[in-house]
């Protein structure tokens, strides 16, 4: 988590810049969406190599359908996240250990699908999702703090306050996403970041070290990346059919690799994975992330 946060600093800055650039033209652009889109596409193609300037003003209009689609998705996910977190925190506060354990991983999936959005919003991500050691011990709160109590200490004692804070952090995320500027660049970077998240902590079983529900996060991160790709794939196919096909195939391969570990509505415990399973999942993940990381250049964002 911590390392990921550092790496978002850059996109976040880029984003602020594009807020400024996009702000003035935004309203008008939305109306003209369709006609502008065709014009911009051909322009982007001629620009091919020089991506440093080319995209910029075009971006907002060019991918506005995808961007709006993603905003809708993010809001839906965060709405559900707040709702499910509320159920989870209620169970914690009511001292219902077993119920809290059942609700923990499913609630987190909504968050994991849109994690790059949260990461772009300052301290929200560490407050909600920091693992033991990511932050100063005194500042540690959020899901993983409660996870430790539920699975390692086997109690909900003393968790009431953490539960309240977690819910209010979740609600704050919901409020902030409303005014957040999302652009194609954030989406593209976010898709790769989601897979990097999986690669650096979920596939190794470090994310959910007490509950071993890592595969829930794994699946959710991949679903989040898949959503972004789905929204952009037509644009991508128009510019680079081969790359698009490669990404599609490798999503499919990874999903196929993950499928046997499904268990009812959820996933088996990370502890059930053999070394060989982990290696295969990791290799399929790397195979997908590599071409996915070229999407931005091809799209010119």
């Amino acid at each position: 988590m911590l390392s990921m946060r550092k790496s978002v600093t850059l996109p976040a800055v880029v984003m602020v810049t594009s807020v400024l650039l996009a702000a003035c033209g935004n309203d008008g652009a939305a109306v003209n969406k369709v006609s502008e889109k065709t014009a911009v596409t051909s322009e982007a193609q001629t620009a091919s190599q020089d991506t440093s300037k080319a995209g910029q003003e075009a971006t907002a209009a060019d991918y506005s359908v995808a961007v709006e689609g993603y905003r809708t998705f993010a809001v839906e996910q965060i709405d559900a996240f707040v709702k499910e977190t509320e159920k989870f925190t209620e169970a914690v506060k009511a001292g219902d250990l077993e119920k809290a354990k059942l609700l923990y991983a499913p609630a987190r999936m909504y968050y994991e699908r849109i994690e790059p959005v949260a990461e772009a919003l300052g301290d929200l991500d560490p407050n909600i999702d920091a693992r033991d050691g990511d932050v100063e011990a005194a500042d540690w709160r959020g899901f993983h703090r409660i996870e430790k109590a539920l699975w390692a200490d086997k109690t909900t004692d003393g968790m009431s306050e953490y539960a309240d804070t977690l819910l209010s952090d979740a609600k704050l995320l919901r409020a902030k996403v409303e005014t957040m500027d999302i652009d194609a660049s954030l989406m593209v970077t976010g898709a790769v970041e989601l897979l990097n998240e999986v690669s650096s902590s979920k596939v190794t079983g470090e994310e959910e070290r007490y509950s071993h529900t890592d595969l829930y996060d794994f699946a959710a991160n991949v679903e989040g990346a898949r959503e972004i790709y789905n929204l952009l794939k037509d644009d991508l196919a128009a510019k680079d059919k081969q790359l698009n096909q490669q990404i599609a195939d490798r999503f499919e391969a990874l999903e196929k690799e993950l499928a046997p570990f499904k268990d009812g509505d959820g996933y088996v415990s990370y502890e059930k994975l053999k070394d060989e399973d982990v290696r295969k999942l990791s290799q399929n993940l790397d195979a997908l992330a590599e071409p996915l990381s070229n999407m931005g250049q091809v799209l010119g964002v």
Binding site: T51, S52, G55, N294, G296, Q297
Partner: peptide, 9 residues
Amino acid sequence: EHNTTLNTP
């Protein structure tokens, strides 16, 4: 070819 292009690895 892409060793000076900023928006791609």
